[in-house]
């Protein structure tokens, strides 16, 4: 077993194990803290798949942004007296059915698919994927072929930011 394969299993175990932790912890903050490990494991898997930029973006957005916001929200709204903020589970039967159904669907797909005949799998394993950084390629694409969607997304986020600032500041101006 090569080092890369070993690392893959370590990161996969980290991701799946901590994702289980997110589901099973009743304390919402514990779940949020284990979510950190899930994101880090996922970033590691991205690096192993040759997507270095995506891995870093994953950490910036999900750990630096979303997770902090989540923990902040829980801490500011909950925690009256000594009770920890707990998550409850509803709809056991329906949840079990949906999850089980999806699982069997994916399982059937994985078993039935013939990996050798898929062109992109063969080309991905033959060329040196993961050897070169995706940084320059993604940057050039964003500034040439995909410049319109890129700018539109930027303007959309700016509008959202201004809207959020307006709503948050509304009470103070009057």
């Amino acid at each position: 077993m090569s080092l890369v394969t070993l690392l893959f299993y370590v990161f996969a175990l980290l991701t799946v194990g901590s994702a289980l932790g997110v589901l099973l912890f009743r304390n919402v903050l514990y779940a949020a803290f284990t979510l950190l490990l899930t994101f880090l494991g996922l970033a590691g898997l991205y690096v192993l798949a040759g997507a270095d930029l995506l891995a870093v973006i994953q950490i910036v957005i999900y750990v630096g942004g979303i997770l902090v916001l989540l923990v902040f929200g829980v801490m500011l709204t909950q925690r009256t007296s000594q009770e920890y903020p707990a998550s409850r589970s509803h709809n056991h039967l329906l949840g079990l059915l949906v999850a089980g159904g999806l699982f069997t669907l994916f399982l059937i797909m994985i078993v039935q698919v013939n990996a050798e005949h898929l062109g992109w799998i063969a080309s991905a394993s033959s060329n040196a994927a993961g050897q070169q950084s995706t940084l320059a390629g993604i940057g050039l694409k964003l500034m040439t072929d995909a410049v319109l969607p890129f700018e539109v997304a930027g303007i959309l986020l700016l509008i959202a930011l201004i809207g959020a600032a307006y709503i948050a500041g509304k009470g103070q101006n009057r």
Binding site: F33, L36, D52, V56, I57, I59, V60, G64, V71, S133
Partner: peptide, 23 residues
């Protein structure tokens, strides 16, 4: 190649640690 971008990303994990310690 992602160099300094990685640096800024990884030190933002420190925030989670601060929250954990404080809470």
């Amino acid at each position: 190649a992602v160099g300094v971008f990685y640096l800024l990303a990884i030190i933002s994990i420190d925030i989670i640690g601060l929250l954990m310690a404080g809470w």
